[in-house]
């Protein structure tokens, strides 16, 4: 079953084409890697999938709703986390969790229960009253991910969730991603770390607003005769030498 169906998605800003006829599906419960150089059009596509921006043409279905006509339904069925912002620095751990719980319409008892589960899982019980700005980036990102799936969405979008995070924490982060996927949450993730791409069930590589390749990491490597995802990525994206930076 497909939870995301994208059919001939085009997004233009004036004469600039950010997404050029994208067509792909994401299956329920899979970890879907969305790769591409800076400026390849990943962020634009994610914004459209999240209902934040409207496609110029094409049909995009997320969690069974059309993003152009029912963005509100899409929004309440997804979670989102980006590299740039994790949580509010001047609020405490618990205050942040509570705020997002309320925003996503959870009841007070649900919020309390899930807060405790979450704090236990992350071993942050002692830090519950600490301001976010006193936590390290790794902790912030793990906490932000947990908050993004607090309302148990059917899909979670992660936009470069591990950039700037140390290898150990990245590993722990991916363990959490697997856990979420096992509990039935579809994970849509962008990353610039090619070792992380290997962890995905399927990946797509974008270049110049187009999808260059889409398959499992193993099949892609075989198909293009590359021995690592890194080599494959360079092979597929190198032809555009002057990348538009975002």
């Amino acid at each position: 079953m497909n939870i995301i169906e994208v059919d001939n998605l085009v997004k233009k800003f004036g004469s600039f084409i950010a997404n050029d006829h994208l067509t792909f599906n994401v299956r329920k419960g899979e970890i879907f890697g969305f790769l591409g150089a800076n400026g390849a059009g990943k962020t634009t596509a994610i914004k459209i999938l999240c209902g934040l921006s409207k496609p110029t043409s094409g049909k995009v279905m997320v969690a069974g709703y059309n993003v152009s006509t029912h963005p509100e339904e899409v929004k309440s069925n997804i979670g989102y986390m980006s590299q740039k912002f994790s949580l509010y620095d001047d609020l405490t751990v618990v205050e942040n969790i509570r705020l997002y719980g309320v925003i996503y319409g959870l009841s007070s008892t649900e919020i309390k229960e899930r807060t405790e589960i979450l704090l236990n899982r992350l071993q942050l019980q002692d830090a519950r009253k600490r301001l976010i700005k006193t936590l390290s980036l790794g902790w912030k990102q793990k906490l932000a991910f947990s908050v993004a799936i607090l309302h148990r969405p059917s899909i979670v979008f992660l936009d470069e969730p591990t950039s700037g995070v140390d290898p150990i924490t990245r590993r722990q982060f991916w363990e959490m991603i697997y856990e979420a996927a096992n509990s039935g949450i579809t994970v849509f993730v962008t990353t610039h770390y090619m070792d992380e791409a290997e962890y995905c069930n399927r990946v797509t590589i974008m270049a110049d607003g187009k999808i260059e390749a889409l398959d499992t990491p193993a099949n892609l490597k075989k198909q293009y005769g590359a021995n690592s995802m890194n080599a494959l990525f360079l092979k597929l994206t190198r032809k555009e030498t002057v990348g538009l930076d975002n």
Partner: peptide, 13 residues
């Protein structure tokens, strides 16, 4: 600037 507006806009708010 911090990107939290994006997170809020993506939420059902």
């Amino acid at each position: 600037e911090f990107g939290s507006m994006e997170v809020l806009l993506i939420s059902p708010l």
